[in-house]
Simulated scan of single mutants.
Amino acid sequence: MNDADFLVSPQWLAEHLDDPLLVIVDCRFSLADPELGQQQYTANHIPGAFYLDLNRDLSSPVGRHGGRHPLPDPLKLANTLAATGINSQETFVVAYDDSKFAFASRLWWLLRYLGHDRVAVLDGGFTGWQAAGYPVTAEVPVPKPAAFVPVPQQERVVDIEYVKAHKDLPGVLLVDSREPDRYNGLREPIDPIAGHIPGAVNYPWQAVTDDQGRGLSASEQKRRWVEGTQAKEIIVYCGSGVTACVNLLSLEMAGIPTGKLYAGSWSDWCSYQV
């Protein structure tokens, strides 16, 4: 298992299902139906996979500010990770979803934020796994005892005050990861105000993968980020700090590991304007 592999194929995963140093995490979720992911996992999942829920496990409770999916408490998340058998610096984690990396990338980013780089996303997600003819199960695995010690990489995350102070500085690229119509303020299905942070450019997160949910090649990711190669600092946001992680994954694949997450994102930014 290569720590530099940001994506793993269904074939690779199928060949390593019995690896004692591997933990698989099902991150399927639906913003429209928050219980759907758990229901899908209960029905069937990749053998050996554990389930982590975006709202319950990969986020903190929502407050007045901080966005719709605040980052989880590091110690609480560390305990959750250990409960799935993940050992710091040792276990190789493969995260998957069925949403073009939308939720698996959140776990990918959180693990790296906590100092654990041994993580990859399943290319093509659960659909790609099934399409390749690999098995699924309803059996919930029993975790092995593990210890996860979080070492938060604070330079990877910024707050609203940091964004305000840095977004207009020379060499800073502020990236909005949402769909173009939301970026342009033509539609806002979730947050109370439409539009984007002044000065932000639009790199929709859906463009990181193809129509089948497979990641574009490293060279194609690099072409996406031509503007980013000139930047001294890249700050990425979305609606609530979740799908922005897909763009942060894309930046890493493009060889630009300097992206920072504005964790509260647009939902935090506009909470100060209502």
Rank of each mutant, 00 (worst) to 15 (best):
G215T: 07
A207I: 11
V201K: 03
D211W: 06
E227S: 06
G199H: 02
G215A: 13
A200I: 01
G213M: 03
Q221T: 08
I197T: 06
E227M: 10
A200G: 04
H196C: 12
T229G: 04
L216S: 07
R214L: 07
G195W: 03
E227V: 03
D210W: 14
R214A: 10
P204D: 13
S217A: 13
T209Q: 12
A207G: 09
Q212R: 13
H196Q: 12
R224Y: 07
K222V: 06
Q206T: 15
P204W: 14
D211K: 13
V201T: 10
D211H: 11
H196K: 06
S217L: 10
W225S: 00
G228W: 00
W225C: 01
A218V: 04
R214K: 15
V201F: 04
P204N: 14
S219M: 12
R224Q: 15
V208W: 01
Q212E: 14
S219D: 15
T209P: 08
V208P: 00
G199M: 07
I197C: 12
Y203P: 02
P198S: 07
R223N: 09
S219Q: 15
L216R: 12
V226P: 01
V208D: 00
K222A: 08
P204G: 13
W225P: 00
T229V: 15
G213I: 05
G213C: 05
K222F: 04
R224I: 06
S217V: 11
R214C: 11
G195Y: 06
V208G: 00
V226Y: 13
T209E: 06
R223V: 04
V201N: 03
Y203V: 09
A207F: 11
E220T: 05
Q206L: 15
A218W: 00
V226G: 13
A207K: 09
L216A: 10
R223L: 09
K222W: 02
S219R: 13
Q212K: 14
E227W: 00
T229C: 12
A200W: 01
V208M: 08
I197R: 04
R223I: 08
P204M: 13
H196I: 09
R214E: 10
P198M: 05
W225M: 02
K222R: 15
W225D: 00
G228P: 02
Q206P: 11
P204Q: 14
A218I: 04
G199S: 09
G199P: 01
P204T: 12
A207T: 14
D211M: 10
G199Q: 02
G213P: 00
A207H: 06
V208N: 01
A207D: 14
D210N: 14
S217M: 10
T229D: 11
H196F: 06
Y203E: 06
R214H: 12
S219F: 04
E227T: 11
H196V: 04
R214G: 06
R224W: 05
